[in-house]
Design a protein around this nucleic acid. Structure first.
Lengths: 138, 138
DNA sequence: CCTACATCCTCTAGCGACTAGAGGTTCAAG
DNA sequence: CTTGAACCTCTAGTCGCTAGAGGATGTAGG
């Protein structure tokens, strides 16, 4: 079983130039090639690229993924480290969620502005107000 | 009242090079200068920069902020447009929150892996599984 | 008035993580 | 054997900053 870069792209939902980029930065191993130098991939590459894509979607930086991937080669000994990376990331994610939720509430309040009553629109004001202590909160 | 770029930086919580960058890309108007070409800012700049910073923190792209700023000059007529930009952004944010929450659940499950039982650690697996529907979850 | 030195200036280059395009080659179907 | 989609390498661009070089300015203390 061998896949072209385009087929791999479709199966792993990662764009072709991005696959080549991942290879370039050493996230993805250099695949075998045809006589004419075209890349051919196997099932392992699909899995690995799925792993990468998913980790990226989850917000892991490439460097973290690189660590995870290298640790994955020896999962039994390295599990503790994987655990640590993941834990650190979890904290980050929780923080992101908290800030985005605050943001959503704010945006919702902003959008709630009925734009038939144009003069009352507060979006600009809300954005401008922050950090200015207009209502004497420090 | 006139502020140096450093004072503006402190008041608006935006780094000095970033302020100059914002000026360069036209987000911030060119300020007045001293004889020796140093920038001097006023209260309006503090407000505008606070607006920009806040909008950035909320995840608005520079282009969107540029629109908001230009619309802000005529808030009565433009409120509908401001509304639209914000609404579009809200949709995005809601989507991000949903995906991050799914991620958090996953990470939490991953971290719950007791690393004394090393062989059972599923972190790598969980990341690799996605898009492969091994456990027939959506 | 002079000196010290923090802060300012402009400029170029770099970062991460891609994305786009030019210009040419390969491969599989008809 | 021809066609044309997909492949190849390469360079350069994107966004939103950030860092550094190398020099000028402005202000506070003596």
């Amino acid at each position: 079983m061998s896949l072209t870069i385009g087929e791999l792209s479709r199966q792993a939902q990662v764009k072709v130039p991005t696959i080549r980029y991942y290879e370039q930065i050493g996230l993805l191993a250099e695949p075998s090639r045809t006589e004419g130098q075209q890349r051919r991939y196997g099932a392992g590459d699909v899995r690995r690229l799925n792993f990468i894509r998913h980790a990226r979607e989850l917000g892991f930086e490439v460097e973290a993924i690189r660590q995870l991937l290298s640790l994955a080669n020896d999962p039994h000994r390295a599990c503790g480290e994987v655990h640590e990376i993941t834990k650190a990331h979890l904290d980050e994610v929780n923080d992101k969620i908290a800030r985005l939720t605050a943001l959503r509430d704010e945006l919702e309040a902003m959008v709630a502005c009925d734009h038939r009553k144009i003069a009352d629109c507060r979006i600009i004001e809300v954005l401008a107000d922050h950090g200015q202590c207009r209502h004497d909160h420090h």
